[in-house]
Design a protein around this nucleic acid. Sequence first.
DNA 1: CTAGCCTCTAAACATGCGTTTAGCAGCGCC
DNA 2: GGCGCTGCTAAACGCATGTTTAGAGGCTAG
Lengths: 217, 217
Amino acid sequence: MRLAAPSTTAETIREAAVRVFGREGLGAPLRSVAAEAGVSAGRIVQLFGSKDALHRACDEHVLAVVRDLKREGMTDAGASLLTRLAMVDGLVPYVAYIARSVQAGGEHARTFVQHMVDDAMGYVADAVAAGVVRPSHDEGARVRYLTESALGHLALRLSLDAPRDGDELVACLRRHLDSTTLPLLELFTQGFLADRRMLDEYLMYVGDPPAREQAQA
Amino acid sequence: MRLAAPSTTAETIREAAVRVFGREGLGAPLRSVAAEAGVSAGRIVQLFGSKDALHRACDEHVLAVVRDLKREGMTDAGASLLTRLAMVDGLVPYVAYIARSVQAGGEHARTFVQHMVDDAMGYVADAVAAGVVRPSHDEGARVRYLTESALGHLALRLSLDAPRDGDELVACLRRHLDSTTLPLLELFTQGFLADRRMLDEYLMYVGDPPAREQAQA
DNA sequence: CTAGCCTCTAAACATGCGTTTAGCAGCGCC
DNA sequence: GGCGCTGCTAAACGCATGTTTAGAGGCTAG
């Protein structure tokens, strides 16, 4: 998996911005992006118009990259798109950028999250139909929960680990994947609670009695 | 559940800071905290020494509040401490503060997360011993995963919703609880994946064959 | 050769933020 | 009344950051 090398100054700047914003968050100074790109801050503003416009350009670019990767067939119900991207060293900056962009909040972030949720809805629906994933009482809520908690967790890890360069960023994401894979698979496979009592109580509470399969238990 | 009203200017400031930082994050200007407390920014620096020292004072205070609440017996394996606190309107600013403090990163945040993980280790160990929660292959990793993803999710929601005052903050947390309770209980009760194949493959991969109960399946 | 355009920079500017400084008001004591 | 202390403020200060400005260098066309 190799992405096209930047050929214009604007592309070089945009890639540098994805790296810097992914490592340090959207609060990183424009001067840091400029230093990473080997240009002046003034040049960035000349080409993009403002820091906010650069942020927007990065969002659009990263979404386009993700869309292209999806088109190449990175679909597999066992691991989220984010996790799959994070396994590829060259894509780690994109994953980090996504997490940092949503962490920053605002309209951009809400759009980004909605995109990720919509994507995941597709995968999960297919997986349920294929019998790989259990059906849910509320598929929309479940997918939003899974997507947001994964994004939020990753963003939190970035803040806690504060990678200073690309290598530290890759190491950070490696550690994150290593430490979460087993607990996640365990939870996905066998759950956490030993019985259904709390789920059933909650379903009664919201006026939605246990589905038919409960009758068999 | 009622917390003691502040009786000194320092306490007033500290409470105001918890509210403002919880709503807007640790990047909120000191002038905003000053306005919320009804004093000048200079007074805050006079009493606490610096913005960073105020942040530290808030951390210590919130941890102490949480410790007191734990002592009052808010223990129940089905809902994390954070969730229980979030159900009480008066404690919502504390929950938001915790999420925002960890979101900011740094040594404070790591300490905070470690406290929450240590707390959760206690509850979960008790719940496993009582047969309420299923045992895990790696309890430490599981508890860290559950704690961090809950914290990260909450922090993300705060960033996305950007509450402007206390009422909006309470509404934000209500929405968060309402939208996550069912998916969480569902996941905790029945998991996500329809079978154990992926978990077993992973356990083989890390050189830890499936435990004895797999033999029964 | 000159003018215009493009690429780009360094420095200046405007603004926001944490912190420092100067000084006021009130109180109690001698 | 004067002094010292406490509580407090408004304004000034120093710095970081996003943005603007002035101008240099290179290239091309007439």
